[in-house]
Simulated scan of single mutants.
Amino acid sequence: MRGAAASLLLVLLAGCASTPAPEARWLPPLGANPVFDATPGAAPRQRLMVRDLRLPPDAVGATHYHPWEEYLYVIEGSAVLEMAGQERRTLLPGESFVIPARQVHTPIAGPEGVRAIVTRVHDADDPERVEVE
Rank of each mutant, 00 (worst) to 15 (best):
R2H: 08
G3Q: 15
A4S: 09
A4G: 00
A6S: 10
L9E: 07
L10P: 00
L13E: 09
A17P: 02
A17N: 09
S18I: 12
S18K: 11
T19D: 09
P20G: 06
P22C: 05
R25D: 10
P29D: 13
N33L: 03
N33Q: 14
V35Y: 06
D37P: 00
D37M: 09
D37K: 11
A38N: 11
A38S: 12
P40V: 12
P40S: 09
G41C: 01
A43P: 00
P44T: 04
R45D: 15
R45A: 09
R45V: 02
L48F: 06
D52C: 06
L53K: 00
P56F: 03
P56M: 02
D58A: 02
D58I: 00
A59K: 06
A59Q: 15
V60E: 11
G61E: 09
Y65D: 06
H66C: 05
E69I: 10
Y73P: 01
V74N: 03
I75Q: 11
E82C: 01
A84L: 14
Q86N: 08
R89T: 14
T90I: 10
L91T: 04
L92K: 11
G94K: 08
G94E: 08
G94P: 03
S96F: 12
F97K: 01
A101W: 01
A101M: 05
R102I: 01
V104K: 06
V104C: 03
T106W: 04
A109P: 03
A109R: 01
G110W: 01
V114Q: 01
A116H: 03
A116E: 05
T119W: 05
H122S: 15
D126G: 03
V130E: 08
V130A: 03
E131M: 09
E131W: 04
E133K: 13
E133G: 15
